[in-house]
Computed example of a mutant assay.
Amino acid sequence: MWFLEVRDELRLQRLVRRHELFGRTPDEAGRWVEQVDQRNAELISATRRHADLIIHLLDEP
């Protein structure tokens, strides 16, 4: 199993941007990320120790 590790700030920015592209307002997108996506990230993060390979995503230039 692989685990993709992304800096929290970058992950949150990308998620908000994605939700905005699909029609949510910036406030709606931010709330969704905080209330739904963050919970999912926490669940996934708990599986990190089981990974055979951890990939660290570098920030965009």
Rank of each mutant, 00 (worst) to 15 (best):
D37I: 09
L53Q: 13
S45E: 13
L43N: 10
E42Y: 03
H50D: 14
I44D: 09
I44V: 15
E28R: 07
L21E: 15
L12W: 06
R31G: 07
F3V: 05
L4T: 06
N40M: 08
R48G: 04
S45P: 00
W32H: 15
D27W: 05
R49G: 14
E34W: 08
E60T: 09
L57G: 07
A46I: 02
R18Y: 07
S45Q: 13
D59E: 15
Q13C: 02
T25N: 05
A29I: 02
M1K: 11
R18G: 05
V16W: 00
H19D: 04
L53A: 09
L57A: 14
E42S: 09
E28F: 01
R31N: 10
I55Y: 11
E42M: 08
A29T: 02
S45H: 09
N40C: 03
L58R: 11
L58M: 08
V16H: 01
R49E: 14
R18H: 08
A41D: 02
T47N: 04
L57H: 06
D27T: 10
F22C: 09
R11C: 06
Q38D: 10
P26E: 07
A29Q: 01
R18C: 03
R11F: 10
D27P: 00
W2V: 14
D8Q: 09
Q13A: 13
I44P: 01
Q38F: 08
R24N: 08
M1W: 05
R18P: 03
E5A: 15
W32R: 12
R24Q: 11
D52T: 10
A46V: 01
L58Y: 00
R14I: 02
H50I: 06
E5M: 08
R48D: 02
H56F: 09
F3Q: 07
I44Q: 14
R49P: 00
I54C: 12
D8H: 03
I44K: 05
E34F: 06
T25R: 04
L57R: 14
V36L: 10
D52A: 10
V36F: 10
L21G: 13
L4A: 12
R11N: 07
I54Y: 02
I44T: 13
T47I: 00
D37Y: 06
R39W: 01
A46D: 11
R17Y: 10
F3A: 07
F3S: 04
Q13P: 00
D8W: 05
L57W: 03
R11A: 15
A41K: 00
V33T: 03
R31E: 15
E42T: 12
D8A: 12
L21S: 13
T25G: 11
L53K: 15
R14M: 04
T25M: 08
E5W: 08
W32V: 07
R11G: 07
D59G: 11
P61S: 13
E20C: 08
A51W: 06
G23C: 04
E20A: 01
L4C: 13
V6Q: 08
F3C: 07
V36S: 13
N40H: 12
L4W: 01
V33G: 00
E60W: 03
P61H: 10
R11M: 11
L21R: 12
A51G: 03
E20T: 02
A51L: 06
D59F: 02
R14P: 04
P61G: 15
R7Q: 11
Q38N: 06
L4N: 05
R24H: 03
A41Y: 01
D59C: 05
P61N: 11
Q35E: 15
R31A: 15
L15E: 03
E9C: 02
